[in-house]
Design a protein around this nucleic acid. Sequence first.
DNA 1: ATACCACTTCAAGTTAACTTGAAGTAAAGA
DNA 2: TCTTTACTTCAAGTTAACTTGAAGTGGTAT
Lengths: 137, 137
Amino acid sequence: MPTYSISDVSKRYHLPQTTLRYYEDLGLLYDVPRRGNHRVYNDAHLARLSAICCFKNTGMTLSELQTLFSYDEHSADLDKIIDLLDRHCREVDEKLRILEQNHRQIKRKRQFYEDIRTARETHQPLPKWADYKITDF
Amino acid sequence: MPTYSISDVSKRYHLPQTTLRYYEDLGLLYDVPRRGNHRVYNDAHLARLSAICCFKNTGMTLSELQTLFSYDEHSADLDKIIDLLDRHCREVDEKLRILEQNHRQIKRKRQFYEDIRTARETHQPLPKWADYKITDF
DNA sequence: ATACCACTTCAAGTTAACTTGAAGTAAAGA
DNA sequence: TCTTTACTTCAAGTTAACTTGAAGTGGTAT
């Protein structure tokens, strides 16, 4: 069974070592054994860290993560887990929808300013922002 | 030309009035006239606020927004504007990619726990997480 | 006119998520 | 063995983005 030092994990997940220790302080990562006083991680820790990053990336706070991880999937808590995942899933749906919309808007802005530059270089009439806004609705 | 009170704007954009004043302190919203000492907003302010929300939503910090808004689109700053928008656009691309991936992962997790519940209710063998992870890569 | 209530300013406080500093320990290489 | 370097703990500090509190002002309904 492969093991990893804190600097291995830090590099692999692009997280500072202090953050890994911080997550352990919060109880998000636990049962990390030590060789001497150095942390030794295994694949189970990495899997859990992946989950932490996934939930955090999608807007869950660390304290919500503490709540989620406090539920025992082998008990009646299962319903709470499913509920929370369901709610979070719908939140991420909405986030995606809005992010895509914002993305299109930013692309339009970029296009608008590029067209201004081109028009200036070629001494053409400047574009109007009103002509760019239409496409979304 | 329609005008709006701070409470109108606050409701329409789901932002507390304090946040609108805060953005004005930062110089992100400016030239907001007063009737007596009450702020009076117009459509140009709303358009600017939309832009602020769009950029903020997509991960730009308020200080980056200050920088962007400090550029004068009628001067040679145009290149800087296009550069910044271009860079931001690519960042949002990447954000979207990761968010979609995370979204799929969360859906799988939800499905996994739902299948556990079903398996328990029907006294079937429990699913294994390994069978859910495959689909992404 | 008057009373109310939404607005105003400005300084200080809050929160989440780290990050840094100081002081100590121990694994790994010469 | 010795030294270097990467780790350790724990408390305190930082940052962004607001938010709150206190004290005052003025538009609007009666």
